[in-house]
Write a protein that binds this DNA or RNA. Structure first.
Length: 548
RNA sequence: GCGCCUGUAGCUCAGUUGGAUAGAGCGUCGGUCUACGAAACCGAAGGUCACAGGUUCGAAUCCUGUCAGGCGCGCCA
């Protein structure tokens, strides 16, 4: 028994009715069951008749009338349907009875905290790789967006039943590490950093720390190694403060050291997707749709970043993951086709790889976009942002827009502790419910949800019905958000729940409500709303406070 | 030049397996505390869904083209 049953039941009934009209054949695409734009149009509506009109060769409204008759038969003996109407171009609108709502609430209560969708039929082992920022400096707000997004996507995928792991790929090999090392070494000896080197206060601080530790600035390997280790420590600390915990960290350098890169190259050569030209080893990625072939091993014998990344992705596959999700920055989107090609060249379906492209975060203050931190003059670090607006607001404002669009993070709005600030608005609703339930007394609310309460004689208020319908949307919202990798949908949904709750609270007295069973029924509804808000915020990694 | 992404209210954005009069937040203007949290609620103003064609009962959504913006097109990572 899952919380979706009430909706699923209706959907099945519509489906069945449509099937009957077509002599048993299923309708394609599936008929919709959605909440119509206006309350006069019923509680739910379906477009089934419009879909059936063409194959049946009849007018949509005629089909709709037949469908209504069929639905009456389908749901007739029960008391759930108030009435059915044909409207507009051929919509079938369903008006549901209080009994239907009461039953829906009971089922939600039975579900307890398991409000999400039923586990999907074919769960996958998924590896989500995200952040993977170069270990040459502290995490910036951009990395923070990757972290918030990747983490929320993992939570969503888990919520629908996948087996998911979070991974951070550490690019601790290659040219940028050498530049990083020479930059620190230069700061240690007081000389000029290299042309394309790293600057900023943190480099000076690292230099000082290494000097104290007695690291020899002439030994670049040691300087780089220690520098990376210290940066990684800091990155971990920042992520942990942000509430993001990776299950695994894979080092690029380690891939080289254990021969994974050579092995991957050998496998590619064996598959004869490579060739030599101008002294370099090339991967024929054009065979798989890339615009040009790519170098795997340079003429000087050094493997490219791509070579290591092929080895890395091969390693992911060998660990048994059936789906690989890479969260990439917008400036890396051109990289995706080669990676797909490489995977295809390894005789694996390239579709196991999914690349999600993240756009930038702009920090907005005083109506102006800025990326610079005031103090350090460097890019705004995630830590500075967290100092300023806190973890919950930071996560919210990084998640409430699609990953596909740049985010303008308005610091003044994010700092505000009022309903202007959507994250406080949602959290406030949760705290307000908690307060109401406290008022009712310990355990009274739990009891209201679970006990067999007498059915109230008074009819449900419109605001109560709206709230119930909203709560019933939760499983579909989670499914949809997970399928589209779109946690921002959950932000919008949680605002809607909060808004519907406030409307309910305005119209309906809870504690001390007159009428037998009314108080109990409304307390149960409060409890259900509270659980749903907590679950929604939980998917975003945001806390649901009992008091504010 | 080629490729990917984007163009919806004053601002920032939701809204794609095609559905009814296109939504939210902020901002602006105006109202509401003798019921359980006013950190709230209600209302108003605000739109040629970039533009032009096409597909059909129906298009912000699908197709084609144009314009504008972002990003990418390394033997960098």
């Amino acid at each position: 028994m899952t919380a979706t049953d009430s909706i699923a039941e209706l959907r099945t009934a519509v489906d069945q009715a449509a099937r009957t009209l077509r002599g048993g054949e299923p309708t394609s695409p599936e008929p919709s069951l959605e909440r119509p734009p206006k309350p006069e149009l019923g509680d739910y509506s379906s477009n089934a008749a419009m879909l059936l009109a063409a194959p049946l060769g009849e007018s949509p409204r005629d089909v709709a009338a037949q469908l209504c008759a069929e639905l009456e038969r389908e749901l007739g003996p029960s008391d759930s349907i108030g009435r059915l109407e044909v409207a507009g171009p051929g919509f079938v609108n369903l008006f549901l009875s209080d009994a239907w709502y009461r039953r829906a609430m009971e089922r939600l209560g039975e579900a307890g905290d398991a409000l999400g969708p039923a586990p999907i039929d074919s769960p996958e082992r998924v590896l989500v790789e995200f952040v993977s920022a170069n270990p040459t400096g502290p995490l910036h707000v951009g990395g923070g967006r990757h972290a918030a997004y990747g983490d929320a996507v993992v939570r969503l995928l888990e919520a629908v039943g996948h087996d998911v792991q979070r991974e951070f790929y550490v690019n601790d090999a290659g040219g940028q590490i050498e530049r990083f090392a020479s930059s620190i070494a230069a700061a240690m000896t007081g000389s000029e950093p290299p042309e394309d080197g790293y600057r900023g206060d943190y480099v000076t601080e690292l230099a000082e720390r290494l000097r104290v530790e007695g690291v020899d600035p002439a030994k670049l390997d040691a300087v780089g190694g220690r520098g990376v280790a210290l940066i990684l420590e800091e990155v971990r600390a920042t992520l942990s403060r942000f509430g993001v915990k990776f299950d695994s960290w894979v080092s690029e350098r380690d891939l080289y050291e254990r021969g994974a890169v050579d092995a991957a190259l050998a496998q590619l050569e064996q598959g004869s997707h490579t060739y030599r030209s101008d002294g370099a080893l090339w991967l024929r990625t054009t065979e798989f749709g890339d615009d040009k072939d790519r170098v795997l091993v340079r003429a000087d014998g050094e493997p490219t970043y791509l070579a290591a990344d092929v080895a890395y992705h091969l390693d992911k596959l060998e660990r048994g993951f059936g789906r690989l999700i890479d969260v990439l920055g917008a400036d890396h989107h051109g990289y995706a086709p080669r990676l797909r090609s490489a995977i295809a060249a390894l005789d694996t379906d390239a579709d196991v790889l999914e690349t999600l492209i993240m756009r930038l975060v702009h920090i907005v203050e005083d109506g102006e976009r800025t990326q610079m931190a005031k103090r350090s003059g460097d890019f705004v670090s995630l830590d500075e942002l967290l100092d300023d607006i806190g973890v919950d607001a930071a996560r919210w404002f990084m998640l409430w827009r699609s990953h596909d669009t740049t985010v303008d993070l308005d610091l003044e709005l994010a700092r505000r502790e009022s309903s202007d600030n959507p994250v406080y608005y949602v959290q406030y609703a949760h705290a307000r419910i908690a307060s109401i339930l406290r008022k009712a007394g310990e355990g009274a609310a739990e009891e209201a949800v679970t006990a067999d309460a007498p059915t109230p004689e008074t009819a449900l208020e419109p605001a109560e019905k709206e709230l119930v319908k909203r709560l019933l949307e939760f499983p579909d919202e989670v499914r949809e958000a997970a399928a589209r990798r779109g946690p921002h949908r959950i932000c919008a949904y949680s605002m809607a729940v909060a808004s519907d709750f406030h409307a309910f609270y305005r119209d309906c007295q809870v504690v001390g409500a007159p009428g037998e069973g009314v108080e109990q029924s409304r307390m149960a509804l409060c409890m259900l709303a509270k659980r749903t808000i907590a679950a929604s915020l939980g998917l975003l990694g945001i806390s649901a406070p009992e008091r504010m």
